[in-house]
């Protein structure tokens, strides 16, 4: 069974927006696109992300968190059903500083899936893949699908209630 991308997109939105003040919220991460090619997320320029006070360039750690999150969700699109994929390891190459004031995008894709490991690669950019800010390679755990039975049940139940309320 392959995942339903529309449902997965809603799942991602709930994960990154439902907890006010968590790290997703703090970084201002948003989902841009989810399909068979992978996942695209964005992170707006914000003062709280600045790493170099002289230039106003955002810190590499924020780019790392964006790529980790985006690659992790991309990995989860390779699962049979909704679920999460803990990060095993992540390598980031920083190629140029992010431009001050501009939105940063991350695009991540899966290039190999094995029984226990999902291999991903990603790029952080401002809209032009030819001018990457950073490139990443990340490996993620593929846990037993049953690990997320409860999470799925809760998510689908809340979605069902949401739809019914919407109609009411």
């Amino acid at each position: 069974m392959a995942i339903d991308y529309d449902e997965f997109r809603r799942f991602m939105d709930v994960m990154i927006t439902s907890n006010k003040g968590d790290h997703f919220n703090t970084l201002g991460l948003r989902v841009e696109r989810v399909d068979q090619r992978g996942v695209c997320m964005s992170m707006g320029y914000a003062e709280g992300l600045i790493g170099d006070p002289e230039t106003g360039v955002i810190h590499g750690g924020a780019i790392t968190a964006l790529l980790d999150t985006c690659s992790g969700f991309a990995a989860a699109t390779a699962l049979d059903d909704l679920g999460m994929t803990p990060t095993i390891d992540l390598r980031i190459d920083y190629m140029r500083p992010a431009t001050v004031g501009r939105m940063v995008y991350a695009d991540a894709e899966v290039y190999r899936v094995t029984e226990s490991v999902i291999f991903t690669r990603g790029i952080a950019h401002h809209g032009d893949f030819e001018r990457p800010i950073a490139a990443s390679v990340g490996n993620f755990f593929r846990l037993e699908s049953s690990t997320f039975d409860e999470l799925r049940r809760e998510f689908r139940e809340s979605q069902r209630q949401h739809r019914e309320n919407g109609r009411g």
Partner: peptide, 24 residues
């Protein structure tokens, strides 16, 4: 700190926050 949480159910810190902390 709550703003470094990535998984509220466990709860667990966001891997990106841990990575950023180590980099800093």
């Amino acid at each position: 700190r709550k703003s470094n949480i990535g998984n509220p159910t466990l709860p667990a810190l966001h891997g990106g926050a841990i990575a950023g902390f180590m980099e800093l």
